[in-house]
Amino acid sequence: MSKKPKYGIVVFPGSNCDIDCWRALDQVLDADVTYLWHQDATFAQELDVIILPGGFSYGDYLRGGAIATFSPIMEAVKKHAKQGKLIMGICNGFQMLTEMGLLPGTLLKNKNLKFICDTVELVLQQTTSPFTNQYQEDQTISIPIAHGQGNYYVDDNTLHKMEANGQILFKYARNPNGSLSDIAGICNEQRTILGMMPHPERAVEEIIGGTDGALLFQSIANYMLNQN
């Protein structure tokens, strides 16, 4: 019997890619998906993957993702992380994960100070993680980006450790934002928490420009199958 991964998408005030994620998962990828409200202190234990979606939570005030970090639901998200379950932070969600300390580093303003809305090429760095096991090694994929604060930064020591642990999952083929070492997406040491600036949920249908993002969700489904 196949087991579909159960996704929970957290909705914050100012989230706007929550709907993109919902559509991708519910209507295109046939996954089980539910919305979670930022003010709730808990969510169902049966959820396999929590998505912190893109957008402008709390208007990006102070720093992108900084205020969302203290939403009541984040305690439950941290618990989910501790249990070794999967979390994906996309764009603003990636900023939240670094602010919470669940992922190393931080996201600075883009080097050219512009909000960049484009489709970019990413090069796969690791194909053994729960999020990338359906991609080929060194595969180049096209995924949209839309951010003003996506310039990844981390200190040298941590970067070396991340490289040695295989925590860098995606790099930009052509660096759009000044990101250190062309980094577009990373995971934690246990490879259960993913943070990426590009939007895989916006690349799951040919009619809107490609399906390279679908393989990420299929990787998760494959990982979950092997877990059970």
Partner: peptide, 8 residues
């Protein structure tokens, strides 16, 4: 806790 991010 909030006002500054010690990483940057």
């Amino acid at each position: 806790k909030l006002l500054a991010n010690p990483v940057m």
